[in-house]
Design a protein around this nucleic acid. Structure first.
Lengths: 169, 169
DNA sequence: TATTGTTATACTCTATAACTATA
DNA sequence: TATAGTTATAGAGTATAACAATA
């Protein structure tokens, strides 16, 4: 009675009836959400990294700047928590951004173990004038394959998937 | 529940309609498909890898078996092409599967440079009795957050994205 | 000359554990 | 005792380039 709500080919061949359609690999993979997600993520990430090449920044660096733009200043660990990056890895990430003058480290006065990472003026400017337009262009290029309706659908559904939000009834 | 570190500013929030928001929440959300895809892909991949742990196989190994089940036998390079894996990496992947008796290498008679990789009986059995049900359960767990309609939507849209198919008018 | 599989190698990425300074 | 940041290091994963056999 359990309705897994899965693409038929993923249910295995164990579906009683003998309507045995030989699932092709293309069909099975094409209906496996795991695969589709991985492929789509790889494709868009490659394009974003390519587009960012001239800036000396990675796609993840852009993520740090975006988080800081909206919610900063934040500690290194807090930024890492939001981006699923370990604190030891965050050290190098912030090093790069600081060396480029896009963020500054200063001690958090309330807790002097932690840094208070903050966007600099140049960092904010780079975001607005270069990075946002750049990534927006990549996104619209990829999304151009979809109808406007599908674009909205996609983001809403993905947010539900990744956010772990239970399906509203 | 798990926190996948979705940057809060990307999740949505206040939609300032009069174009004076400093390029944050609303606009960023509309352009954040790259993030959403990456997060969703990471989440589902982690769960699939976790579920496959007992089998000694990786999610990618399962992909190889799926491709062979439907379209095999194939050369190592052809399998790699379909899964976006380099031929030098495919050597190790096939090594593992062969050592477990799930596939066999034999020389392609038409082109003796290439191998003809084929699923074995045990390989086919493992797919049907263990791997397909296992991965189906993971998928259904993740997709349970979505309505039936959204599940179908998602796969169709992702296929368009990753496939590079132009938007049909 | 080009291609399949292979190997060796190097490079990237990331996490783990230990250390320091604060709490 | 616990935590933020740091550092060194080790491991996984992957790609690159060269080589042998075959086309």
């Amino acid at each position: 009675m359990e309705d897994w709500g899965l693409p038929d080919p993923l249910r295995g061949g164990a579906m009683g009836g003998n309507g045995h359609e030989p699932a092709t690999a293309a069909r099975r993979l094409a209906e496996s959400t795991g695969w589709l997600l991985t492929d789509a993520a790889r494709e868009i990430t490659l394009k974003l990294e390519e587009a960012l090449k001239g800036t000396g920044l990675r796609w993840r660096d852009y993520g740090v700047l975006v988080v800081l733009e909206a919610d900063g200043p934040l500690s290194q660990q807090e930024i890492g928590r939001r981006l699923a990056v370990d604190r030891s890895t965050m050290v190098h990430v912030i090093d790069v951004l600081e060396q480029q003058g896009l963020v500054v480290r200063s001690r958090d006065r309330a807790d002097r173990r932690a840094y208070s990472i903050e966007l600099t003026g140049p960092g904010r400017t780079l975001l607005v004038e270069v990075l946002h337009p750049l990534t927006a262009r990549v996104h619209s290029g990829v999304m151009a394959r979809l109808t406007h309706e599908d674009r909205a659908h996609l983001n809403r559904i993905l947010a539900q998937l990744a956010g772990g939000a239970p399906r509203p009834e």
